Simulated scan of single mutants.
Amino acid sequence: MTTPPSAPLVTILDDEPQIRLMLAEALEAAGFRTAGFSRATEFEAAMAGLNPDICLVDLGLPDKDGLALVHRLATNLGAAIIIISGRNQVQDKITGLELGADDYIIKPFDPAEVVARARALLRRGRSVPTTKSRIARFAGWSADFDQFLLQPEDGAPTPFSHAEGEVLRLFLEAPNRLITRAQMQELLGGEAGDSFDRAMDVRVSRLRTKLRDDPKNPKLIKTIYGAGYIFLGDVQWQ
């Protein structure tokens, strides 16, 4: 059975051929398209012509630092990122999530688990917005969730990552309302705990920077200590 060209594309970056093959077979059987790479340089060169929905990235790459690559992808690419790694230290997981990854899977793993988590990420990306529009306007800014761009009235656009976009959509869909950490965990998925909280804090911090929102006296994204966040302002969807 041929996978249709409209099927979600998953890129697999891992230097072990058997892992790439195992993941490709499982994902394609589940209806995904796949593209595999053994080197970060090869993968980065291919990104100019690809628009993946999900990137699977092994941290133990032979030619570049995997965490640095995850950070670049989270900053410049709209795709969701799942780290697959033999590193099972809690700090590695926390660092990966803080740098912008959406999920972290430790080797060895069952390919069915990867498929399930990929599907969950796509569901999250499609289900969070309740409006039909994909462009929101607020406080002199526009957020384009098709192109993953923040556009100010007086300057050049700034890209935001898939992970940052999930948080931004939560705020823009519920302006002037408290969004608790428990609600964020429920809507965005992930394991509740310090690693999730730190990942959310990092994403909010990055959004503040991109929105020129002074972290010491924020006007848009207010932290309610011990509770969560409130996005202040009127939002119009187009």
Rank of each mutant, 00 (worst) to 15 (best):
A101L: 03
I221K: 08
Q151K: 14
G155N: 12
R212I: 15
D53C: 12
N51P: 00
N51T: 13
V10G: 10
V10R: 11
G226V: 00
K107G: 02
E25H: 12
L61D: 06
G233P: 06
F37P: 01
S85G: 06
G86I: 11
L207H: 10
F32L: 11
T2L: 13
I84Q: 14
P8A: 07
A29P: 03
N88P: 03
T180D: 05
G233D: 00
A174H: 13
V90L: 07
L172H: 02
I54G: 14
R20G: 06
S85F: 01
A136Q: 04
G49M: 00
L97F: 09
N88G: 15
F109A: 01
L50P: 04
A48F: 11
H162M: 05
E42G: 03
F138L: 07
S127Y: 01
C55S: 14
W237Q: 11
Q89T: 09
D144M: 10
L172C: 06
L61F: 08
F160V: 07
A80P: 07
V10T: 14
V202I: 03
E25G: 00
R169L: 15
P108G: 04
L77I: 09
D144K: 13
A68W: 03
R119V: 01
L67H: 04
I54W: 13
L121I: 03
Q147Y: 00
A143L: 03
N217M: 04
